[in-house]
Design a protein around this nucleic acid. Structure first.
Lengths: 338, 338
DNA sequence: TTGAAAGCGCTAACAA
DNA sequence: TTGTTAGCGCTTTCAA
């Protein structure tokens, strides 16, 4: 394995100059730089990350911690962050905190704390006070995406406003019996966003003078089957009490609602309007009206925010308030006249 | 940041003994070990990965290289591998080779080759000869999952047999007009499996004496919308030429086929039987009969295979031929009598 | 079983 | 702009 000394010899300079030429830190004359780069290329030299880290304290590695790998939102965030980081010359190490208890502890103790990463992105993660304080103790930049972590800067859309925008869309079309499929207890705990989306929904109703109706609120687990089951319940009510529109807290639950309506012989949007939140890859396919929140971009922005902290000269700070917008497709329309 | 010397002092031993006690390499008396472990715990000591790597040559880090992050199969494999590796004390560094050209080159040159990983898992990846030889030159254990890489041991199900099993299931029910939705050119290139699944389909037909019909073979891109479009085409044929069953090369395409049938007013399995390959999380929801291939387990096995190479004493070799089985649900039935 | 000591390959002061 | 040199914190011989 070729090391820095061989490159130095080939280029007729010292190790230090090779290091400077290759890393861009410290000044090197253009001619020397060329010579070094050429020698490195010829010899197929790549710096030893371990040696570099040990000497410099920099890892060029960011940890991404997420609770699941099989949810669209998470993989999108991950993909967006990864792309941005690779571009900046950073590796991405993946920490899946699916497990609880011991496994989770191990990830914290042996991995994150193992001084392998320069910074970390926590995606929709609920952390204990103990975990948070330990992360803080690390003194490493940390940014959350999607779920707020106490004391940690977090990038997220304004979930209250987003849900309100979606509800206002339905109200504007003339709907008044609007149901909401939100998160169940588990997802409340993990993401903290279902309550916010529900609040946006309620705020919109109140502002429009539409009375709330607890029987129009259902809980599900953010999956298609979960949304399907919840919608079936809501739509099974007698016609007079049946909702004419559903706001689902995620697109996947909205897909489930659309499928449930179809199975009941209800047409979308004829008999039922459906709105989601996400703008999932399949939203177009299902013709779903939704609030786009661009998780991939969220991941990229989270990465950018870390980079701005790690290399302030090279990167701009990032605005923590993320954009979102209503995308109207074919799952919403005016309610049928009674 | 507490280092090994402080632990050594606290435990009244040398650095070397601390290293031995913590790593399990070399002999340490039980009493000493206890003392060291206690001191390390009290001080909150965690080894510096960089220093350890530099001194030992071991990274305790495995690279996982995959083409997409937004496909169910890939994230399942990733999750399975990650879980297993974390358990064994390894980190997982993610390399997303979505890009082509320069980006892809960079991943190879600057990352994989940067001596950061001890081994790598390549998921359904098509590598160029040049890329393969460079990986080989690294001399690091490498295992493929899902897509065969020339010269690299690969874990995969026998795709020909799997497709044949699915087709035999349909033939056994009495179907003879069986269509196949396989991969398009892009996916052929990337995964190499669509041709195999198609061969299994054809073999089964031949063995059953059922004449092949090119108009019953369609191509798609392994997505739900892709399967939907392909199925619409197939099912749009005049009744006499319309298939009574479809074998899709993936569950997601099968879901698309089911939705297409519904939209055409055809009942599944009454008018059309559908079989997929994967046993996707949603297969149960759609009642899809499918070939289960357990990608999560595949990832875990790939990880196990690497571990067996990295630490032969601690781990058993892995059988490269993966199990698969037919899971019969409600999307298949005998064809309606003509 | 334990300790002393020589690196592992690089970076960053400091000096020239 | 370049070179010299002292570490970074561990692992691993080798000797005791």
């Amino acid at each position: 394995m070729v090391n820095i000394a061989e490159v130095a010899k080939a280029a007729n300079v010292s190790n230090a100059t090779v290091s400077r030429a290759l890393s861009g830190r410290g000044s090197v004359s253009p001619a020397t730089r060329e010579r070094v780069l050429g020698a490195a290329r010829d010899l197929g030299y790549v710096v030893s990350q371990a040696a570099s880290t040990l000497a410099s304290g920099r890892n060029r590695n960011v940890g991404v911690v997420l609770p699941f790998l099989d949810r669209w939102f998470f993989t999108q965030v991950l993909a967006g962050a990864q792309e941005r980081l690779v571009h900046a010359g950073y590796d991405v190490t993946l920490y899946n905190l699916a497990g609880h208890g011991d496994e989770r502890r191990q990830v914290f103790d042996t991995f994150l704390l193992r001084r392998r990463v320069d910074a970390a992105i926590a995606v929709s993660l609920e952390l204990s006070d103990d975990e948070i304080s330990r992360l803080h103790d690390l003194g490493k930049p940390l940014v959350g995406v999607g779920g707020p972590i106490a004391g940690v800067p977090t990038l997220a859309i304004d979930d209250v406003s987003a849900a309100r925008l979606a509800t206002d869309h339905l109200l504007g079309l003339g709907h008044t019996r609007i149901a909401h499929i939100g998160g169940d207890e588990d997802s409340d705990l993990d993401f903290h966003l279902p309550p916010k989306r529900r609040r946006g929904y309620e705020d919109a109703l109140v502002a429009a003078g539409v009375p709330g109706d607890p029987s129009l609120v259902a809980a599900a687990d953010f999956t298609i089957p979960g949304g399907y089951r919840a919608a079936k319940q809501l739509l099974g009510a007698p016609a007079a009490r049946r909702p004419t529109a559903i706001l689902a807290a995620s697109d996947e639950m909205a897909f489930g609602a659309i499928l449930a309506a179809r199975d009941l012989g209800l047409s979308v949007p004829g008999d039922l309007s459906v709105v989601g939140v996400d703008d999932h890859d399949l939203a177009e396919f299902f013709g779903l009206t939704t609030i786009a929140q661009h998780p991939r971009r969220q991941g990229a922005l989270a990465a950018g925010s870390l980079l701005a902290q790690l290399e302030p000269d090279a990167y701009e700070p990032v605005d923590p308030l993320l954009p979102f917008e209503l995308v109207v497709r074919s799952s919403t329309a005016r309610p049928r006249p009674a």
